[in-house]
Design a protein around this nucleic acid. Structure first.
Lengths: 244, 244
DNA sequence: GCGCTCCTTCCGTTCAGCGGAAGGCAAGTA
DNA sequence: TACTTGCCTTCCGCTGAACGGAAGGAGCGC
């Protein structure tokens, strides 16, 4: 690996993740695999650039500059904008947490999320990546992914809760059903006490560009209603995407 | 200015802004004030780190890595999460575009935004900064800012539309009224065809931590209803903030 | 006191970064 | 075709910025 300053800078920044939003200098250096003195200097530079902030307690956090820059990334901006109003509609109709995700390699990347007042235990957040086999949106994305991705996913089905599907054959059957019926469901497979329903969002050429899902405490017999609401919203998003 | 690699990297990244989300290499170098060869090498490094992407047409855009990092920034995460459901409620009740902003120096920084299907011409977006004197949320934040900020703002009131308030005395009178009545309004002062109403969001110690506003085509005689809805939502946010 | 972990500063070495210059496309112009 | 203009890319010798071990605090617990 080339030891350019740029790569070191991103090694440092990469030390932050969802579970480590603030770090001490030494933790930063340790996680980035850099000598303390080097980390110290780079961190000082980054702070001068506004990329890192130092909180009163001495720990470092990602700074405003990076927040600004991140918002400029073309992360499906069009998709997010097109979907936004429909997510609200869905929330209004179901009062459930609503998710919009795309497939990023072998993971589902959540690009928008809309949570209500009372929420089921939910792990996802905007920007987080979750496996394809244990969530509603994940299964939808998996069902419409290229064969090699499906194969790779089936190869390692990690158990997350007692209800997570870990037998390849069973997941494959689900994938087939999802393709046929047009929606996916999960029952506490990612998080206990949380069930989900999800449908694909299609682009102009009918290809699946994203998945739209909601999370509810229990499916009971609301499933048909939820599926219908999701499909209406998904079609609305597709229509909005088409004209732009 | 120290010519550290880190600063150069951020000079490059800083060449992107809301109006320039994609740039050619030479534009990037020009805007960053760097020699072409230098920019070329740094851009290659950044691309290797995932901080920049190259689109098929050859232009560079902010990459996914920075999007991820930006989401880790503690940009009022607590405030955003607390406010989120109330923004939806507001949208549901009014069908207007809803904004949540904080004061960042002498500007209003929009930290969340919720737009409906049909929207009035609106300039703001999440992450954008707008002056304090020409928007609803801006005026609210101005009215509860320290005296020196108010003085600085009054000193340069740039005209944006024919209706923008540019006389210091008049804005000062408005600021006093906003403090007394608890809400602010604007009429096409930022963008023609867009009026707004905004109220303060208060923290545990009754200090103003943010402003909550909505944008509508016209105020007509809906103002009392809108103000009431906003105040209910703002109090809800404050209550949610208090217990956490 | 002693040990521990953390942060900061110093300084001589050296190698990564620098950037002018030159070359290669691709489009537009005459 | 020949010339211009704007891009992007590569080369290469010089040099000073980055490096990181080491030493020196500062704070805390025992």
């Amino acid at each position: 690996m080339g030891a350019t300053v740029t790569s070191r800078v991103f090694d440092l920044l990469g030390a932050f993740d969802a579970g480590h939003r603030s770090l001490t200098l030494s933790a930063l250096a340790r996680r980035a695999g850099l000598p303390l003195a080097t980390a110290h200097r780079l961190v000082a530079d980054l702070r001068r650039c506004g990329a890192l902030d130092r909180r009163p307690d001495g720990e470092y956090v990602i700074g405003r500059r990076l927040w600004d820059l991140g918002l400029l990334a073309p992360m499906r901006t069009g998709l997010r904008q097109a979907a936004s109003p429909f997510l609200h509609d869905l929330y209004g109709a179901t009062l459930a947490t609503v998710h919009l995700a795309v497939r990023d390699g072998a993971e589902a990347l959540y690009i928008d999320r809309l949570a209500g007042h009372v929420s089921v235990p939910i792990v996802s957040d905007v920007g987080s990546r979750l496996p394809l086999h244990a969530t509603g949106v994940g299964k939808v994305l998996l069902a419409h992914a290229p064969d090699d991705v499906v194969a790779a996913a089936l190869a390692r089905l990690t158990r997350i809760t007692p209800y997570t599907v870990t037998e390849p054959a069973r997941l494959l059957a689900q994938v087939r059903r999802i393709r046929a019926e047009g929606y996916a469901t999960t029952g506490e497979e990612m998080s206990l006490g949380a069930c989900s329903v999800a449908v694909p969002v299609r682009g102009p050429a009918d290809e699946v560009v994203a998945a739209l899902g909601i999370v509810v405490p229990t499916l009971r017999r609301e499933r048909p209603k939820l599926v219908a609401a999701l499909q209406v919203a998904a079609q609305g998003i597709s229509r909005t995407l088409a004209r732009s």
